[in-house]
Amino acid sequence: MSLGAREFDFVRDLVRTESAIVLDAGKEYLVESRLLPLARAAGHPDVTSYVAEVALRRQPRSRTAVVEALTTNETSWFRDNDPFTALRTTVLPALAETRTRRSIRIWCAACSTGQEPYSVAMTVLDSPLLAGFDVTIVATDLSEEVLAKGRRGEYSQLEVNRGLPASLLVRHFTREGLSWRISPQLRSRVDFKQLNLLRPYTSLGRFDIVFMRNVLIYFDQATKQDILRRVRQVTAPDGYLFLGAAEMTRGLDDKWEREPAGRSALYRVREEDRSCVPW
């Protein structure tokens, strides 16, 4: 169900009053995508009914949560740190040992404006075990707008402040006016492509690692199941899946198994289900 006009107007007025940020008409998709996790957490089937309740109850806490969800950048470099530590210390060393063809393919699904795939690319470049490996990073998103920004590889000072260590900033970026531009070496590592996760992914090829973090939360149960099943089909039998900290495969697709990795966790196809997937 799409967001009702009255609810959108309420959110627009609230955000304008509280943060001075103006949500133009046509930003309904933004409101929906940012508020859906809050709606689900509050037990609502959709954003319209959640916003209607927030408007009715006049609770300052829910109103603040709505404003913050719409005014906070939702992406950052090395987001949550731990998955990247697991990538560096567990996943890449394992693949360096097992991939005798010296080729590794990584998919960042819902890559937004590029911070995640470029963080992966920096981790790969800094991994001495992968010297001489051909590493491909495919970054997909539904929105052409965010993909265009990712392809440009140009970020504001505020954007590079969010989670990018200074040593990596000066090594991999160049200051251009008020912005920072990513190095051609990193830029060339990432292939940005438009993709709707509800459509087939087989044309992307097979992957050794899939990053699909904070994506499933936007979908209903049946769609989550379908996505996880189809991700399994494009993941190497001994490959790795990263989900968001609040996401899991249990009860959705039990052919995936959770594997702790440091302070993080990753998902792998169960041993007994691996042989049936040709690779």
Binding site: R79, D80, R162, A245
Partner: peptide, 25 residues
């Protein structure tokens, strides 16, 4: 500067001086 509180906390987390701070819930 200017920075947001989470930007500083993320730097601290990266330096091992804080538990990691999720950017959003």
């Amino acid at each position: 500067k200017p920075f947001e509180a989470d930007d500083l906390r993320q730097k601290l987390a990266f330096l091992g001086l804080l538990p990691d701070v999720p950017v959003e819930a």
